[in-house]
Write a protein that binds this DNA or RNA. Structure first.
Lengths: 139, 139
DNA sequence: CCAATACCTGCAACGGAAGTGCAATTATTG
DNA sequence: CAATAATTGCACTTCCGTTGCAGGTATTGG
């Protein structure tokens, strides 16, 4: 079942606009998490706010998820099929390259069980591995 | 071997000033990670920049370490004895309470081995468990 | 098909946090 | 005590995230 981006957005109850299609395609092309200013630099004609709100809309509709990789700047990436970001038990694992500064979703690598002391209740886990990515280490 | 704070700071090659003693004591009293504005609110007479630079100094000398708990605001906590924050292999584990918004160092809970795909080199791991802390869950 | 409505976009502006340059003050050293 | 070095405070800047409002564009119902 191949569905177009337009159909996909409509299925998520998001109105299809030129801007949204462009941003969606931009995210889909990339394998890494992007910042808002990455998007800004790519679509210089568009307003910051529009891009910001587009991402927010995508986030609300569980099309993209936010990533905090410790750089202090929020990054975003498309959710994969089966990614249940809205559910707290969904565990994220991200890799941040200290060399090229890119952040990658390692969706296939699940987070192991983490023990917390008595009295503490774990609801969610944010795990960022930092180091050198495959492209940079291969050089 | 009890050493005074003055002696401790001197051993780290940090000049002892009233400000630094106050901030050190403030950090030592607390069991949780604090933000820069926490410190600002506590020492309203002092200038923001001074507090900022004091923390930076402590950080450079490995007296405090930075914590990124996903709130977007950098927090700081005293390094414990034996905490080798400057060494990349030192693994941090922190707990962020979604209720009281406090972040706690769980220094006794080490991070388990995380597998990364071939070609990736892991240098450091940031792990934040979010949930309800012992104080909040006990109520 | 048109009007009413809802939604999207762009501009302007705000607020918080991090960071820097510089001058003045304070401490250290010889 | 003088020269030097480090610390502190003020002013200012930058960056990111966010919101209010006005104008434009798309959608819906009659």
């Amino acid at each position: 079942m191949m569905e177009t981006i337009e159909q996909f957005l409509e299925s998520k109850k998001i109105r299809v606009t030129a801007m949204r299609l462009l941003i969606y395609k931009f995210l889909a092309e990339r394998q890494v998490a992007v910042t808002l200013s990455d998007i800004e630099n790519t679509f210089e004609k568009a307003d910051r706010t529009t891009l910001y709100r587009t991402i927010k809309t995508f986030e609300d509709k569980a099309i993209v998820h936010q990533i905090d990789d410790g750089t202090g700047i929020t990054k975003y990436a498309l959710c994969e099929q089966g990614c249940n970001c809205e559910i707290e038990t969904d565990l994220h694992l991200h890799f941040h390259c200290n060399n090229c500064n890119q952040t990658i979703c390692l969706t296939e690598h699940k987070i192991p069980q983490i023990k917390v002391p008595d009295g503490f209740v774990s609801e969610n886990i944010n795990l960022v591995v930092k180091g050198i990515c495959d492209k940079c280490s291969g050089q």
